[in-house]
């Protein structure tokens, strides 16, 4: 069947860091054909095809928020599959195998998680759902 393309505008320059990515220039329009929940989206841009960070795109009509789930302050239990050391001050440092609560699943692949008293952003690709209830 036909593939529905969604168009997005690039908000800042992005230089690709691996061969299956596409370099972006602020103001470019890109057509997205697949959205991975880890924040990498597949774009078809004229002759170029490859993965681009969702964090550098904005929808043309500004109605992106509608597809993003609301924050869930009660939290959903996930476990870290891989450790990550915070680079930005709003990120969280965790080791592999820690149980945390996910409170907001952002489309850019950086979810807001809570560990005890601390909250911060963490890469969704390093998390898996435990299926347990608190």
């Amino acid at each position: 069947g036909p593939i529905m393309l969604e168009s997005y505008r690039v908000i800042a320059d992005y230089g690709k860091s691996s061969k299956y990515e596409v370099t972006l220039k602020a103001g470019d329009m890109v057509d997205i054909v697949e959205k991975s929940p880890n924040g990498w989206w597949f774009c078809q841009c004229e002759s170029r095809r490859g993965w681009v960070p969702a964090s550098y795109l904005e929808p043309l009509d500004g109605a992106d928020e509608s597809e993003e789930p609301e924050p869930n302050y009660a939290g959903e239990l996930y476990k870290t599959t891989k450790g990550y050391k915070a680079v930005e001050e709003d990120e969280l440092t965790l080791e592999a195998g820690e149980t945390i609560e996910v409170i907001h699943k952002l489309l850019d692949g950086w979810w807001v998680v809570r560990k005890g008293e601390d909250t911060g952003h963490y890469p969704s690709m390093f998390l898996y759902r435990t299926g347990e209830k608190k």
């Binding site: 800042a12 860091s17 490859g50 302050y73 850019d108």
Partner: peptide, 22 residues
């Protein structure tokens, strides 16, 4: 392969586009 998304976390949004924590 190009069918699989990169295995490294994507970059954070540019600072002026970052949202505050929930």
């Amino acid at each position: 392969s190009i069918k699989e998304p990169p295995q490294n976390p994507p970059p954070r949004p540019p600072p002026e586009h970052r949202r505050k924590k929930a």
